[in-house]
Design a protein around this nucleic acid. Structure first.
Lengths: 258, 258
DNA sequence: TAGTGGTCTAGACCACTTA
DNA sequence: AAGTGGTCTAGACCACTAG
């Protein structure tokens, strides 16, 4: 696209950085560029103005421009090619991500309660033995919980924990607070990191009973395994949720508001 | 935790920034701090050294420290409280995100092919009419595709497109390249943005036939709607994939390697 | 009031791409 | 050779927090 070099490259908008605004200059610049892409001033594949041009145009320092451009790159709105320029991306489903914020809200909700269905020591076998890296027959703690929202069953949770005789099970660990802490990041977790997986499955008869659902209906299975600071597995289990009660959504491409 | 102020706060590691390395200083600093958290030098809830201390300790400028700390904050490893300090986060499932990179790889794979099952003009009705914001009875393009990998059915894709008589359907838009472009960000898309959703479902008889699966087995449904640069809906549809052929995984907490 | 993070400046040098 | 992005310096001022 040909640009008249005597004029700013922002079309008819003539947007400026408002120095009096509480919004930082680099955020304003991000939004200005996004809006220009949104309006078609810059199209996918187009080269954005160089950093030095943006400096002059908006009268900010190179570091501020750089910070704004980096944000656009982080958000997969643009990509930089060293020595060449910064280019607007096409829409890219591969860069999409589904967040678990919805689940976080579920656990922070006041009407969410936990019902302990079972707590007992079981001998490790099969998958639990493998996942938790303990020999078959070694004792594990099995916890089965039902998570309710407004007294309606929502999640069925089955979890195997490493049995440590020196650390008795504290009641608080069984309550909703422990799970809430996991999802919200509050609480001082013993876990260093973990792995999560989502699968599509159908509800088994065991699960159907506690979830008040019919066997064979669709459900999400959210598997988890957590490791302690020695990188030893500590907890393995999974959540089951009826498919009609949960879904994950996200957006791709340029969003009107950040 | 009490720290002997005469010594560096990195325990027995005594890690330094290697100025000769190709790895930028700020990346090295990110990894050093992560490793310290990983080793338990800093635990969840602990305050990280202040920026000025990190400057002195690693002999880098404030901007470099700042950049490293911002990366940790972006990765949800730590959080900053203005006027107070920067604190290590607990593990937080709510910040977890499932990426579609796996699907991107699927579409980039050479052995992935597309079989067009049907292309025809249909009158808009029900959900398609609503989602694409056209009146009932208006013409829409319906495309049904089967995506195969190594000649085995993988995805069933059903898509409704706005019918624009001025823009005839180009054959290339029906091939795998168009979908590949969507997932990889290559290709010059007409779409500005879109919304995606994942649901758990069971395979219907129609879907079972083309996917060579049994009715009633678990499946993922990936719904999509795309908008053009006028923010008008252009495409609505969904992918169906057998649950045993697809899963989404991610990690939470501190990872050993970035 | 001292310390902290949040923002920003006005440059610099380098590696890389393009012509 | 000229232009571009990638990194980094050595400060500055501000708003906020905490003792």
């Amino acid at each position: 696209m040909e640009i008249d070099k005597g004029k700013p490259t922002n079309g008819d908008l003539d947007l400026k950085i408002d120095r009096e605004s509480y919004e930082p200059a680099y955020i304003q610049l991000v939004n200005i560029i996004k809006q220009q892409i949104s309006l078609g001033v810059f199209r996918p594949g187009d080269k954005l103005p160089s950093e030095s041009k943006l400096c002059k145009e908006y009268k900010v320092s190179p570091m501020t421009v750089r910070r704004a451009v980096n944000i656009l790159i982080d958000q997969a709105v643009a990509n930089a090619v060293q020595g060449s320029g910064t280019y607007v991306n096409s829409i890219n489903l591969g860069s999409a991500a589904f967040h678990l914020k919805g689940l976080q809200e579920f656990f922070l909700d006041e009407s969410t309660t936990v019902k302990i269905l079972e707590v007992r020591i079981v001998p490790a076998k099969d998958r639990a033995s493998k996942k938790l890296a303990v020999g078959g027959g070694e004792p594990l703690i099995l916890i089965r919980r039902l998570l309710l929202k407004d007294n309606e069953p929502f999640f069925y949770h089955k979890e195997y924990l490493i049995y440590d005789p020196t650390r008795p099970i504290v009641e608080s660990e069984l309550e909703v607070t422990s799970l809430r802490g996991l999802f919200s990041g509050t609480g001082s977790s013993e876990f260093k990191n973990g792995e999560l997986g989502i699968e599509a499955t159908v509800i088994s008869s065991e699960e159907a009973k506690v979830l008040k659902a019919e066997t064979g209906t669709a459900a999400f299975l959210l598997e988890h395994i957590f490791y302690d600071f020695n990188q030893s597995p500590v907890s393995w289990g999974w959540f089951i949720c009826r498919g009609d009660k949960l879904s994950f959504t996200t957006t791709v491409g340029i969003q009107e508001t950040l």
